[in-house]
Simulated scan of single mutants.
Amino acid sequence: MSAKAPKRDPLAIDFCGLQFATPLVLLSGCVGFGEEYTRVAGFSNRDAGAVCLKGTTGQPRLGNQPHRVFETPQGMLNAIGLQNPGVDRVVEEILPTLDFDETRFIANVSGSTIEEYIQVTRRFDASPVDAIEINISCPNVKEGGVAFGNDPDMSARVVAACRQVTDKPLITKLSPNQTDIAENARRCIEAGTDAFAVINTLMGMAIDAESREAVIGNNQGGLSGPAIKPIALLKVHQVFQVARPHGVPIIGQGGVVSATDALEFLIAGASAVGVGTALFYDPLVCKSINNGIRGYLQRHGLEHVDQLVGTLALNGSAKVCRDAGTGG
């Protein structure tokens, strides 16, 4: 009699050929280079299927002037400015300190030119990282500062260039600050992306009424946290319509603080769920999210989290439009 196959863990997923212990992903910029929370009692990277490392550029960057972070109602503005030690130091000094048996590690590539994206991607291709996330929300200095991710042509050019220099899974991080995220996703699929992270932060501002000055040193910053979740859910659903026929998975992210939030992203079409801002006030939140997802599966008689992906039922004959609104 043949040996019985071991039962598959309900939360374990295959993401671009990588085995994630859970569908949760710790987002870039929220856990440093994987060591940010290791000194917190009870924290373990094992509670996440993958960790996205801090955004990395070709050369070291000091980042923006303060203030860099500002708390908002149901969210947070940040304008760190991609402070990082540069890709050579990350590869040579930081990656060797990470425990690749503990979880999967995803590099985050940022750049101001196509050439810089190529340089950083090529360097990470020759490193132990499991996958590479492309942050296309960076400003293109050769095109007057417009963000790569807000123009489908430029987005596709970045993805195609990175695709040429790596065989590792490429995850394109899509910006919500654009006219048509679904069209951008389609172009990125044609250019060779293997997956998407949806969404990056929304641009926002905070003002000190007494001084009449912008609070953030960079004047504007990226808004994250629960305030952006409804927008993120819609964008995930829109990208899913384009990505599903090609088998391109999505990391859904934006305001996830509970198991219910994570479940909503899975139902909208995400195969994995990013956790970011919530870690700043509850570093152990992933434990409760994982437990909550397990409980949901049991209550609904589901054997695996994959069974939830893209199961959203739209109301009646209504459909979600790219420019949908209430009117009136």
Rank of each mutant, 00 (worst) to 15 (best):
P176H: 10
C321M: 12
Q119P: 00
P176S: 11
T260C: 06
E183I: 09
A232C: 10
C286D: 01
A156S: 14
E143Y: 13
L279T: 01
A272M: 13
R294T: 01
R186Y: 10
N219G: 01
D282P: 02
D208M: 01
G144L: 13
F43H: 06
D14S: 14
D101E: 14
G145Y: 14
Q59T: 03
A161N: 01
H67Q: 13
F148D: 00
V87H: 08
I114H: 00
T57C: 04
G144R: 15
G327E: 05
A41P: 05
L314W: 09
V158F: 03
L297H: 05
T22K: 09
N200R: 07
N177V: 11
L26C: 12
F265S: 02
T56G: 07
V320S: 06
V165C: 10
T121K: 02
S127M: 10
E210Q: 10
G217V: 08
I94M: 14
G204W: 00
V236F: 03
L284G: 02
N150T: 15
R294H: 02
E93D: 15
G29R: 09
D47C: 13
E213Y: 00
E143D: 15
K173V: 10
I134C: 03
V51Y: 08
R39I: 05
I171R: 03
F240Y: 15
M154D: 04
G217K: 02
S127Y: 07
A126Y: 02
C138L: 05
G221W: 06
Q65M: 13
G42M: 05
D9V: 03
A197F: 05
L284H: 00
I80N: 06
S224Q: 01
I251A: 06
P169S: 11
L18T: 11
N84Q: 11
I231V: 15
E183D: 12
G276N: 04
E115V: 07
F148T: 02
G327C: 08
Q220F: 14
V305F: 06
L312I: 10
G292I: 06
L308M: 12
V109R: 01
L263A: 05
E143F: 12
T103P: 10
G204H: 00
T56P: 05
D323A: 13
A41M: 06
A243S: 09
I94C: 04
L77K: 07
N200P: 09
D180E: 12
A243M: 07
S258R: 05
G217Q: 01
T72C: 14
D180F: 11
P283T: 02
G325E: 07
F124L: 06
N184Y: 08
G75N: 03
I228Q: 04
R322D: 04
S211Q: 13
N45A: 12
A160G: 02
V90E: 09
L314H: 10
V51R: 03
Q253I: 15
F240R: 13
E115I: 08
K54V: 04
I134A: 01
V141C: 12
R294Q: 07
D125A: 14
A209I: 15
T22C: 09
P249I: 08
G225T: 02
D282F: 03
G247M: 06
M76V: 13
V31H: 12
G325P: 00
A268C: 15
L98G: 02
E143K: 15
L266K: 09
